[in-house]
Structure formats: C-alpha cells, structure tokens
Amino acid sequence: MNLSTNSLGSSVKFRHFLSFIFKILSLLGLLLGLIVLLVLIGDLIRRGGDRLSIDFFTNFASRKADRAGILAAWVGTLWVMLITAVLTIVVGVSAAIYLEEYAPKNRATRLIELNILNLAAMPSILYGLLALGLFVHQMKLGSSLLTAGMTLSLLVLPVVIVASREALRSLPFTLKEASYALGATQFQTLVYHQIPAALSGIMTGVILALSRAIGETAPLITIGALTYIAFLPQSLMDSFTVLPIQLFNWLSRPQEEFHANAAAAGLVLLFLTFLLNGVAILIRIKARKNIKW
C-alpha cells in the first residue's frame, strides 16, 4: 500500500479544490446580492430620478402628481424611527442585561429566552393587530406617532435583545473577574466594562433592527396610519404617515406619473436606510476605538 504518496497526495489536491470552489461560491453570492441592489437602485433612478427636487421634499402629498411631495412622509419616518430607536435601545438592552446578568438560570428563564427567539420570527402584521388592540383601543393612544414607535419597537425588540445578549455573553469571564476582584459592584462592572465592551455588538443588533423597522408598512397600516396628511406632527400624539405607506399609496394608483413619485420616494427610503446604517456604523467604530483588546 502506498498510502503516503498517492492517496494522501490526491486528497490534498482535492481539499485545495474544495476550498477553491467554496471561495468562488461565496464570491458569486456576494456579487449576486450586489448586482440585484445596483439594478434596483438604477431602475429607481431611471424611473423616479427626475422627480427628486427641493419641492419634492417640501411639498405635502397632492392629487396632482407633479405637485405631490413627501414632506409629511419623511418627517413622519424620522419621528417614528427616533421613537423606535429610543424605546428599543432602552428596553432591549435592559432586558438583555437582566436576562444575561441578573436572571436566575432556571427553567422559567430558558422558556423566556426560547420565546424571544420565537417572537423574532413572528409576521409583522400580528404585531400590528396586537398594537391595534392594546395601544390604540385599550390604552387609547390612537393612531399616533407614539403608537407607531411602540409597535415597531415591539416588532424589533427580539432582534436587539438576542444580539445584545450574545454580545454580553461573548465577553471573556476574566473581564468581570478583574473588575470584581478590585471590589466593584455588579452595576459598576456593567457600566464601566461590560456594556462598553459589548457596545459594538449591541449596535450591530440595533442597526439590523432599525433597518427592518424603517421599511415596515403592514403593522402601521393596521394601527391606522394615514395615507394622506397635510400637516407636520407637533407632538407624540399626532397622526402621521411614513415613506413606505406613501410609496404604497402612489404605487396603487393607475396613473404613470404617480409611479414616478413612488420610485423617487423609494430612493429616499433607500437613502435613509443607508444613512441610518452609516450612523450606527460610526457609533460602532467609535465604540471600538475606546476598547482595545
């Protein structure tokens, strides 16, 4: 038997070949994603690029396509995102800290963890139904910005909780140990070491969550968001509309001109999503700078 040269030699070659194939496959996957995104953006620009003007941003919606704008929609989207972000970060990170650091490790905790994972997979329309019953009718918050923020926050909380827990859990035990050995309390250890060190992981979760929330339409329609609105919200309790709803509304009209408006609104939505990610990435980079392993 000539195991050492022949059979081993060919298996090395074969392994190189496999590794090469895998490299090509992952490259293809990346290219496919990129191409689809580029085609989408190109198509939107072709169809709606002309509509992008200052007026488009400063006009309210209108029955005349060439005078219609997205003022109410983009302001509404910004408001809703802000409320969602604040609620999600505060509640999500606290919940993650509680589950990871304070909760007793027993059956009940494991059951809660499992259900959080389940919640992350729930269709968004169901959150809309829950919010309609609970926030709109029961708590009498109406179809307001606050309701919208709370609904979207509920929707993306599981993502943030899971990501934050993962980030906290992946920290080395020696970090905690070093802090406690100096006489720190659990709270001091969390604030000085664990949260800062986990921040970039937490922000990754927040990015994912907000990118999902910004495009959500179904739950907001369910809670009764308006499609036509001619004023800017003044308080948390005002009614509102958001970009995806405006976009959907224009798309569902028969006239071609409104479809151009929809494409332009789509571009703005895409841009806002990128902007949001950009901000979150900046925060991540800053968080990484302060932590040097």
Partner: peptide
Amino acid sequence: FQKPNPFP
C-alpha cells in the same frame, strides 16, 4: 490572576 487580565 494567573493570566494577565488588563481591562481593554
């Protein structure tokens, strides 16, 4: 500790 564990 046995292994150095400075804070980051």
